[in-house]
Design a protein around this nucleic acid. Structure first.
Lengths: 132, 132
DNA sequence: TTCGTTGCAAATGTTTTGCACCTGA
DNA sequence: TCAGGTGCAAAACATTTGCAACGAA
């Protein structure tokens, strides 16, 4: 049951997200894809983002501020979220997968993945602060 | 401006969250506090949870599944989230604050905190899976 | 032909907000 | 007194879903 069938809408969404370096919300993606498929609906965008995230083609980032964001980058990496402007930035840092072992030591369940969000101020917001 | 004034509703919410070991949603907290202050409104609960989180008295946990959860535990710790039942569990693990330094190495902003969410199956869901 | 996919719109679930009244300092 | 807090209800958002028509295999 549930064999995935090709759809140009899904393909287009996937390519769009994977080509962008920012971390767009579903709505931003909708606005972009609409320039190619003017009739696409927001529901279709949400449905496909969900499928693509389940397949591991893209990553869904949930922040406490506003809508979820999506990331099409393939290689594993972590994120920084600015507490002022809420921008999401990819971090270039060494692999820290070993924290999963540390986490699993006193834990009765089965840990298979993790997400780290780092918080603080991004470069732009530090600058703006100084100009106050 | 904005001096915080005492309110028994806020006090009650704070004590409730800090006394619980699960990770209730705003609505669960509302239902509980209502047993003491039957007229409290959900809006008041949300407003106070937000204030308490800003003050650092409680922690707000945003998951991609459903409503945000709140944690009143004082000492720093990390969370496990079951991908099946979405339960949130506190982890007893060694401190890994040093990952902030690793993250800051090639980054132009200022990192001051982080949150790690570990994912997988909790003990109960592993059991249930075996009984299929 | 079959069954996943789409567009549309309505529904859902969560959180925020405007406002008149209440309350702590 | 008076700024902050509250209850209530409506609004704002983000996301999901039912359904009839469409399209890929």
């Amino acid at each position: 049951m549930g064999a995935l069938k090709y759809s140009r809408q899904r393909e287009s969404i996937k390519e769009l997200v994977q080509s962008r370096k920012d971390h767009p919300t579903a709505d931003m993606i909708y606005e972009s894809v609409r320039q190619i498929y003017p009739n696409i609906s927001l529901g279709t965008v949400y449905r496909n983002l969900s499928v693509l995230a389940d397949m591991g083609e893209i990553i869904k980032i949930s922040t406490s501020e506003g809508a979820d964001r999506f990331d099409g980058r393939r290689s594993p990496h972590n994120h920084f979220i600015c507490r002022q402007c809420h921008k999401v930035i990819d971090l270039e840092m060494e692999n820290i997968d070993y924290i999963m072992e540390k986490a699993g030591k006193n834990f009765a369940g089965d840990i298979d993945s993790y997400k780290v969000h780092f918080f603080g101020l991004c470069r732009e917001c530090i600058k703006n602060k100084k100009n106050d």
